[in-house]
């Protein structure tokens, strides 16, 4: 097991990326690099995180969105060099770590309530 940890440390040593911390229920935008021949462009995928899976360098997360009325899920490796950036749009209030129940829902019931955070109010 130490050998696996070592290999990951070596391979990810030069990958110094910092993404915002997000978890299941959050709404994020993943800007993903797509290489077409020699050209490279960035495609964004915006949706709700329904799962964070695995540990270490092989961990992945799944983003679900509704595209033209059809649910689309995409699995991203967290340390993929093709992820340009991740933007956290909203953090959601959910009670589960894996939101598989979202697959059976559509429309209003598929909405995730936004988590209300305490904000420091400046004194007048």
């Amino acid at each position: 097991m130490d050998a696996i940890v070592f290999v990951h440390q070596q391979l990810n040593a030069n990958a110094s990326k910092s993404y915002p911390t997000f978890k299941a229920g959050d709404n994020i935008t993943v800007n993903y690099k797509i290489i077409e021949g020699v050209k490279e462009r960035i495609q964004s995928f915006k949706g709700d995180v329904i799962k964070r899976q695995g540990t270490g360098a092989t961990q992945t997360f799944t983003v679900r969105k509704i595209s033209d009325g059809i649910g689309v899920e995409r699995i991203f490796p967290y340390y993929s060099p093709n992820i340009d950036s991740i933007v956290l749009n909203k953090s959601g209030r959910v009670r589960r770590a894996k939101l598989y129940y979202q697959r059976e829902r559509s429309g209003k019931s598929a909405r995730i309530q936004e988590k209300k955070r305490a904000v420091q109010v400046k004194a007048k």
Partner: peptide
């Protein structure tokens, strides 16, 4: 044989591989 993992290659593709001492 130590175990399996996956790494990202230069072209960005994830490859499953086995670590052998």
């Amino acid at each position: 044989k130590i175990g399996m993992t996956s790494i990202f290659e230069a072209n960005g593709k994830q490859t499953a591989c086995t670590i052998i001492e």
